[in-house]
Amino acid sequence: MAFNTNTDIWLAGAFAAFSVDILVYPLDTIKTRIQSPDYKKLYTDNGKANKALFRGLYQGIGSIILVTLPSSGAFFTTYEALKYTLNDAMPPNSTLFMPQPVINAVSSGGAELVSCAILTPAEVIKQNAQVVQKDIKGVSPTLQVLKEFRRNPLRLWSGYTALAGRNLPFTALQFPVFEHLKSYFIQKRQKQKGGKVDGIVERASITAMSAGIAGSGAAWITTPVDVIKTRMMLSAGKHDQASKETKDIGKLLTEGLASKSSKGIFETAREIAKNDGITGFFRGAALRAVWTALGSGLYLGVYEGGRFYLEDSRKAKEGDPIMQKDWSNTKIGIGPSRSQGEGVRKSAWQDE
């Protein structure tokens, strides 16, 4: 992050999200339909997938593009800022110690909470639009879904807890593994090339490969939460009205509205277990692992490539900020630090 501004991080994250949305969205649509409670009724004939499963694969993409751009920028800006802050708080700057995988997990978790708050309404609209049967010609599936939320737009945030509950463990699993694999592959490449990794494409490729491996494993493990999240968001778009309006945002985020169709996390989980058994929680797991491997690889690969491109452009235009800094008043040598107070103390092994 040494040469990147927050604007650089935001732009790189937004461009990465746009690339993924365009290229991987059809697989996400198929995954949503497979996880839908109406999958067997609408998308299969005698146990085999029918044409409806593969029709209108870009339904609802408009809303998700509009919102994932700011949400992805917010994620990466928060992630990089938290990671930098936590690393800076480690020894010798303080006595606090936190392993690097924990730092990566905490940073990605905090970033997800921010991102999910922005993303939830678009995710609800998107998933409901993905399963709309296009009976009315010329009418956008997204507009059909929006009509269902006119009376109570707050329903768009039902499922926030399920979305965060899926994304938090996903990123907590993915990012430590991703950062470890990236460091491993970079070090291996440096040994092969005599200590240097050249070029934006090479660095982005290493990032994409690491992210794909880490993302596919995390996606498979967190599929049960993803199925619950999908069912909750689809139920939020059903036409039946709530028995009463609610202004309790906390209750709305965890349970949705008190209606026949809008269900909470535990009720949704019980319904899946009752109707589909344990296998119902892993519906679409293989497809999700594949598209997450592609999506995560492309997402983080494009992000890293974009970040390095903006960094190199900034350095070429403005020069190296480290070399331009005024070091005349900088004291070099042993002195007090935040962890040591006014003097330098010996380590425990030195006192022996």
Rank of each mutant, 00 (worst) to 15 (best):
G165H: 07
S63F: 01
N46F: 01
S158Y: 04
K325I: 05
L294G: 08
A219Y: 08
V131L: 06
V201G: 04
A129C: 09
F97E: 06
L287F: 09
I265C: 04
L53V: 09
S243F: 15
A117K: 12
S71C: 01
N167S: 14
E318S: 12
A242H: 07
R55W: 04
G319R: 10
Q190M: 07
K193V: 13
L287D: 12
P176A: 07
D38L: 06
T95V: 00
N104D: 15
S205R: 07
Q192A: 15
S337N: 10
Q133N: 15
R345E: 09
V290I: 15
F18Q: 07
L181C: 09
E123M: 10
I272V: 15
G199Q: 06
T68C: 00
R203I: 02
N152V: 09
M232D: 05
P321T: 06
S115N: 12
E318Y: 14
F15R: 01
L168F: 05
V177M: 04
L66Y: 05
L294P: 09
F15A: 04
M233S: 02
L163W: 08
F175V: 13
F170K: 09
L294F: 15
P121W: 02
H180M: 10
C116E: 11
M233W: 01
S235Y: 00
I249N: 06
Y160K: 03
E148F: 09
S296E: 14
G277P: 04
A273V: 00
W220P: 01
